[in-house]
Design a protein around this nucleic acid. Structure first.
Lengths: 253, 253
DNA sequence: CGGCATCTTGACGGTAGTCAAGCTTTGTGG
DNA sequence: CCACAAAGCTTGACTACCGTCAAGATGCCG
């Protein structure tokens, strides 16, 4: 039995993000493999690390021309309000995921833009730099630019795919598909191999799957009675990934 | 009263795609504005024009390493089968829209990949070239590459947005939103200012909106009785864009 | 004319949204 | 330490929307 409760595990007091961790995250950026040494050093020099508590918002205000960021630890949700109380979550970013966050007026590249919001799902550590410094790096290194955009369109296509498949699915397919996806994100917590390693309320799940929190609650209860998952306030643990995947009714292409 | 019927208007016998039209399409590619003369000439030299009848598929077989294409005339749907009879339409491309269509094994950029299918909604003319020739052009011209990828991610983000908004919408919102979008695509046909200028069956609309064709039929009938649209076999004409947009319940951000 | 694809309409049922009440856990302040 | 509030979750009843199935109408083309 682990010494700490699930709640404590998900909400560590400190975000330990040392210089080594920071450097490791930068080195593991998949598109950096093709970059010149100068580009790599340029990135390492300009990225500033920022520790963040749970539920904090990544403010665009400090970066007038947008920002390039990498999640070093923890998890960040990307969402948008589409009504007064109603919001939609586009994606969840975990360690190693990078993002662009900028002004949609700009005709250039964009991934997320200012009407969207980014906020942490756990204590996190985010590396950020101004787009004004990032873009010249890209432009000076065609190999890097090609690799970066390759990764970018790959990510967008994947997200696209997720949503398309969602549209025609019933609630339990959507949720099992979503949980399978979330389960594959982020490093596992010691002692809880199946635990999805960030805070995740029923409301969040609903906002990701296009459902209401009541429906999510009902479906999760059904999963739980089948022994497929275990869940509590703000967390979900996957007990049987095989069974979960079967319920998503996905035929691989 | 126009001399030709709607059916004849939508299905012209010939696809007149002269050298001038072809050159005009290439020149109007938005990302080409930033390219060098060499890149522009390289594109013009390598793009081959191909006339296509209605309902024909753009075959990937002739392009082993994928292809870059531009729609010069007509309209092309991008779709995927997700079941035996069930397919989903990602997007509709009209004159001026370009696309990449390649092997997903490739780690590079991708927009649509081989499990997807592209097929014409009307007699069309498509300009194509092998990715093996296109990629070097991009790499040799950083300005072009940046502009191209800017446009690319812009398109993907837009599609993303569409789907996210769809998810929580009821059927009539979805359809009015979709029709507003489709109405903005492609050049208008003379004599029918509001006509969506390509074949569009109830089944196609359903595949785009995540609905069934029966539901589409019912909603369209309701729109028609309000005088918002007019429709027949394989075509939809928007009569009152204002009213249609109001029904989509979109609050601009 | 006949065959086919497309579209319409109806009846029925199930899924999931809405509303509401109540429960449990967590956090706060006296 | 307890009371209280707030957030998160569960459950139930009701309802509406939309998918399914089926039959029939309409337009298109050989």
């Amino acid at each position: 039995m682990p010494s700490s409760t699930i709640h404590e595990t998900l909400n560590p007091q400190v975000c330990h993000c040392s210089a080594e961790i920071r450097q490791g995250v930068i080195e593991r950026l998949p598109f950096l493999r093709h970059a010149t040494m100068e580009s790599q050093k340029g990135l390492a020099r300009n990225l500033r690390s920022q520790g963040m508590a749970e539920g904090q918002e990544i403010s665009p205000l400090r970066f007038p021309s947008g920002l390039f960021g990498v999640v070093a630890r923890g998890a960040v949700k990307v969402y948008r309000f589409v009504g007064d109380q109603h919001f939609v979550i586009f994606d969840v970013l975990t360690a190693g995921d990078w993002f662009l966050y900028g002004d949609p007026d700009d005709q250039g590249i964009r991934l997320y833009s200012y009407p969207d919001q980014l906020s942490t799902l756990t204590t996190s550590c985010v590396l950020t730099m101004d787009r004004g410094r990032f873009d010249p790096l890209l432009r000076s290194d065609p190999q890097l630019m090609a690799a970066f955009f390759g990764a970018l369109t790959g990510r967008l296509s994947q997200a696209h795919e997720r949503f398309v498949r969602f549209m025609a699915f019933p609630a339990d397919h959507r949720l099992s598909f979503l949980l399978t996806y979330l389960h594959s994100k982020g490093p596992k917590k010691p002692g809880y191999p199946g635990l999805i390693p960030f805070n995740l309320t029923r409301r969040d799940l609903a906002a990701m799957a296009g459902l209401t929190l009541e429906t999510v609650s009902r479906v999760l209860s059904a999963f739980e009675s089948e022994g497929v998952v275990r869940s509590g306030r703000g967390w979900v643990e996957v007990l049987n990934l095989e069974a979960l995947h079967r319920r998503s009714h996905l035929t691989e292409v």
